[in-house]
Design a protein around this nucleic acid. Sequence first.
RNA 1: GCGCCUGUAGCUCAGCGGACAGAGCGGCGGCCUUCUAAGCCGCGGGUCGGAGGUUCGAAUCCUCCCAGGCGCACCA
Length: 505
Amino acid sequence: MRSSSAVERLAGRLSELAGAPVELERPQDPAHGDYATNVALQSAARHRRPPRELAAELAERAATLEEVERAEAAGPGFLNLWLTTAWLGEALAEIGPDYGSGSAERRERVQVEMVSANPTGPLHVAHGRNGAYGDSVARLLEYAGDEVQREYYYNDSGTQMGRFRASVDAVRRGEEPPEDGYRGAYITDLAALRGDPVPPMLAQIEQTLERFRVHFDSWALQSELQQRLDDYLPRLDTYEKDGAVWARSSAYGDDDDRVLIRSADVGGGPTYRAADVVYLADKLDRGFDRAIYVLGADHHGTRNWYASIARMLGYDEQRVEVLLYQLVHLTRAGAQTKISKRRGDVVFLDEFMDEVGVDAARWFLVSRGPDQPIDIDVDLAAERTQKNPVYYVQYAHARIAGILRNAEGHAIGGDAPPELEREERDLIKRLTDFPVVAAEAAERRAPQGIPIYAIRVADDFHRFYHEHRVVESETEAFRLGLCRATQHVIARCLDLIGVEAPERM
RNA sequence: GCGCCUGUAGCUCAGCGGACAGAGCGGCGGCCUUCUAAGCCGCGGGUCGGAGGUUCGAAUCCUCCCAGGCGCACCA
């Protein structure tokens, strides 16, 4: 059972009056009220009446609600509302640490598979984007009420892995890595160890991810999944051609048919696509309602592939969701640096964190929409550390922590005074937006909405702080409550994107 | 050639059906004997790539065109 926020309850009451679902929005222009709705515009056609007339009627009825101070029809047919300070006080009072959680319509068991880089080298910044994005989506879903498992999928037996091992072996023999192999300082480091270089490489990757605050619950291995292909072949639509076994995926929505088992003349054996089939079925059979894949845009071609095998295997394709994010382009001192693990000159995620810090790294990689490519001039990113908005938001949190320290032992959370200051009203209204912001970010898989909103909150708080004293003011208890509520919301925003909320700066 | 994504202020990007299009950075000018100046206030800046269409209403939806990125393996 989910609890509704004050804004939702208000919208519900207005919906009854209007006889249609009311969505409240926050107008940009303060002259348009605290909240506004366009129901009259929406339903005018259905009622075959002028929207302004409907809005005027609704305004009259809305004015009778006790929480509404004033209601008026405006513009082409908007309904503008001003709320009482008592209502704002109540809305503020319900803001706790978990404000806005549990918004999911129906709670699901969700698996988010992300990063999934094969252990041929250290993670680079593009993997960081995958992790920052995927993990933030996972956090948003958890906050909304879903049960989320984070999984990492990798291969330790494919062609690339062979080249990786051969490169390490070559260095161990004192030779150069093969032409198509991997090189760099990390290869030399691995060559100094004994045995298979894959486990230590994987351990290093996990360590990097933990530092990046992305924690995995489970790890899936391609070679294990491949072995179970025979169990699934009967459920698939396949045929033989040129000595290979093909999936008839084009009949299920993919652009082409795909090879599942190679022909003998190229060595035979299952392809990675064979593992895809087993893995997808395995995920859904493990009891997840939904399997989310987080992939770089260079893998967009696999979207139709996954959908087609879901269909072929008889699963509801809605349960499979592929999230794509555009690539990260790195520049150094203005010149484009091509990301390639096989060269030694790339910027690794660890280096990136060294240069800009974990908080700024996560903030930066998640604050652009996934469809937007990210350009990072690494030198500039390091320089700009002080200017990064993440510090602006963290500073607001630390400032509040300071105020609350100064007010230790004082009463927190008194009733709202009869007249609120403009900055107080603005801040409270901003805070009451949070449940909608968090819910939309989760539904749209769009975590970038969180940092943007957090900047707005910090904005409103800094302005309030600048204009009004908290400690030893006439409304101290109320203002302390306002500060604490703001701190809760900022801390939650930062947590949802994996950034720390410092007590001091 | 086909597919996916992008084109919004000098730069980096929000906004993705509503009332005059926003922020950060950069530029200029103010504000600290009071809870952290990593802060606040003010000034400038845009034919929302182009053309049609749908709608009471479009940066937002549809079509076409132009420009850029990324894909189109018996590699993962």
